[in-house]
């Protein structure tokens, strides 16, 4: 376990480099994710925000660098240890990535079925519980993903990510494609679940409202590395970087802030 400033570091990334063909996206990227925080990764298009999530979750191999998960270096993981770690995180992909041939309820039960040996009645009850926690009506349980709206698919995807009560959830653009009301509800949902379940949330986002409403810390990807981390308010008051200035002090950011009074009571 890595402890820094009295907080546990659940994910530590050091010296990460990755290039696709001749295009190098990071040279040397460092990042820490602390237990219990909501961290937002922001950056311009093509800066590798989603790729970073994929590297941390082991879907993409980096060219160089070390990823440490729960104090264990990723490349040193045995297949069994990797399996154990995979049960400690949940991932919400951009469009939910629900299995289209299974109903919502079956989708939520997939991780339980795969990793544990629970009685069916208990899996049903737990899946309904998760469904209700993410704000879906019980009627949605027996629907197929293609019968759901985009917002409902995201919620169902989140319920599947939470199926095993993970310690970390990765959210890839959680509010993209939702209307402002739906997006605000989703922000509140994330904050509420984070408090209820004691989650660490790692999210890739573009949404300034989300950042100002729910995020504890923001990490900015630019110039092939993480150029700054800090609370949304800090970044807004002292940008110190042209991209951050444009992002946090631009027209849209002014509409989304002032941050403090809009924060969901934590």
């Amino acid at each position: 376990m890595i402890v820094e400033d009295g907080r546990e570091v659940v994910i530590r990334v050091r010296g990460l480099a990755k290039s696709f063909g001749s295009h190098q996206i990071w040279e040397s990227l460092d990042l820490d994710v602390y237990r219990g925080e909501i961290l937002a990764i922001v950056g311009g298009s093509g800066q590798g925000k989603s790729v970073l999530m994929r590297v941390i979750t082991g879907l993409v191999q980096p060219d160089a660098g070390i990823v440490t998960l729960f104090g264990i270096e990723e490349h040193a993981l045995t297949p069994e240890a990797r399996l154990a770690i995979e049960q400690r995180w949940g991932i919400l992909f951009q469009d939910g990535a629900l299995f289209s041939s299974l109903t919502v309820l079956q989708n939520i039960q997939v991780p339980m079925r795969e990793h544990l040996d629970l009685p069916q009645s208990m899996m049903d009850d737990l899946a309904f519980l998760k469904l209700s926690m993410v704000g879906l009506p019980p009627e949605a349980a027996h629907k197929f993903p293609s019968e759901l709206s985009g917002g409902m698919r995201k919620r169902a995807g989140l319920a599947r990510a939470l199926a095993l009560d993970p310690e970390i959830v990765f959210l890839d653009e959680p509010t993209a494609g939702l209307d402002p009301i739906g997006a605000t509800e989703f922000d509140h949902l994330i904050r509420k679940l984070q408090q209820t379940l004691g989650l660490t949330v790692y999210m890739v986002t573009h949404d300034l409202d989300t950042i100002f409403t729910v995020c504890d810390r923001v990490a900015v990807l630019a110039d092939k590395k993480i150029v700054r981390t800090g609370s949304p308010a800090e970044l807004q008051s002292k940008p110190d970087h042209p991209w951050i200035e444009e992002y946090f002090c631009g027209e849209r950011a002014r509409a989304a802030s002032p941050a403090e009074e809009r924060r969901v009571a934590g």
Binding site: F128, L129, P138, H142, L197
Partner: peptide, 21 residues
């Protein structure tokens, strides 16, 4: 406190009726 929040939430959520298949 955190245990209580979770237990209350589970209690509240568990009330919902389940639709029959």
């Amino acid at each position: 406190d955190s245990f209580r929040i979770l237990i209350e939430e589970v209690h509240r959520r568990g009330q919902a009726e389940k639709p029959d298949i």
